[in-house]
Design a protein around this nucleic acid. Structure first.
Lengths: 199, 199
DNA sequence: GTTGTAGGCCAACAAGTGTTGACTCCCTTG
DNA sequence: CAAGGGAGTCAACACTTGTTGGCCTACAAC
């Protein structure tokens, strides 16, 4: 897969600097895969380095320590859609579809979930994302702004629970459901949590 | 807390055997607490032994190895209520209430969730529980028996997601919700997943 | 061509892990 | 009382982990 191979006919300025950035990237992608597959503790620096075809000490050189590597590997922007611009009754469906698409194309989310469950720093990171990226969405569609955090939490519980059973624990029936079926079932739930009057 | 203290005036047969069973129990409770708090990898046998006030080697003597200890520590019976005997439209509320009560009084569930996310054996254990204890509930109330597994998975996703955000990741709004509020929000969701016609 | 500098690798360290075997102590049984 | 066996302790093992410092190599500037 190595594009622009070792021929290194690349332009004059910065032949080595180029290479360093390529290995930094290799480390990050390897780290994301390992964190997603194994969680924080079992994703060893040695294994990540092996995947990236470099020496373990390079990880330390570039990212200081394991926590630094994790922090660099799992920064994520959920790119939440602008729900205020949607018809009010399509918010639930749009969010579920966006969530499924993002999760399946981006292993960082699985990594974050796996790490957040066992590592305090990971949990904090998830709280940040919830606070900065999810609550604002609720704020945009909730009838009562004061209820936005609670309603966002309910929606997050439903979506993260689905990710948990489908992508992490892999309950067979949860894996077998198609994305369309999931959207059909979950959309009304999200819609209600975010826009319906309090029960 | 040690009932019938070291006076050992207990009846003749089996003074030592009694003590052994007491330490077995101490190991199990310490293990449950540690697994719940730290997950599988970070819950070290040494820490568990320290909590139980015994030597690490005793853990090996009684449970063989760490996996054996885990298997012994997290066997659980959810004691699911007999939903067939309930009015059909109260199933959702009953399940949510039962779930919240069970989770808050039993740290084993948090342990299982934490371990299941990073450890294959833990995930398998959760799949077992889902298959043997949750699917039957869905079978008892689903209109179409063939859909029971999928509907059970949807319900499990919602409930586990709530446990995840409230008891493990501790999103502040999820922690702040009262059990009554949670029941009011989630009961209709469970009700729909289990009993409503397919969307 | 010489030199400085950054990229990269090797070997090693200290700490902590699960696990094992030999040892002591005490209670129960004859 | 003597003997047996199980409960419990101690010290050590082999191994893996994150992390460090010294060394080599190749490119860029002078």
């Amino acid at each position: 897969m190595r594009a622009s191979d070792s021929g290194s006919t690349d332009s004059g300025s910065g032949g080595t600097r180029r290479r360093s950035e390529r290995t930094r990237g290799a480390i990050l992608t390897a780290a994301r895969i390992r964190f997603a597959a194994d969680g924080y503790e079992r994703a060893t620096i040695r294994a990540i380095a092996r995947d990236a075809d470099i020496d373990p000490s390079m990880v330390m050189r570039y990212y200081g320590n394991k926590e630094g590597l994790f922090a660099a590997a799992v920064s994520i922007d959920l790119k939440m859609p602008d729900v205020a611009a949607l018809p009010r009754d399509e918010v639930g469906r749009a969010l579920v579809a966006h969530f499924l698409g993002t999760w399946e194309e981006n292993e960082v989310l699985t990594a974050l979930l796996r790490v957040g469950v066992t590592n305090p720093a990971g949990a904090e990171r998830m709280q940040e994302i919830f606070r900065n990226q999810l609550i604002p969405v609720a704020h945009a569609v909730c009838p009562d702004p004061e209820q936005a955090p609670a309603r966002a939490a309910l929606g997050a519980a439903q979506l993260l629970g689905l990710a948990l059973t489908r992508y992490v624990l892999r309950f067979p029936p949860a894996v077998a459901l198609s994305r369309e079926e999931i959207a059909a079932w979950l959309a009304p739930t999200l819609q209600r949590y975010l826009t319906a009057p309090s029960p």
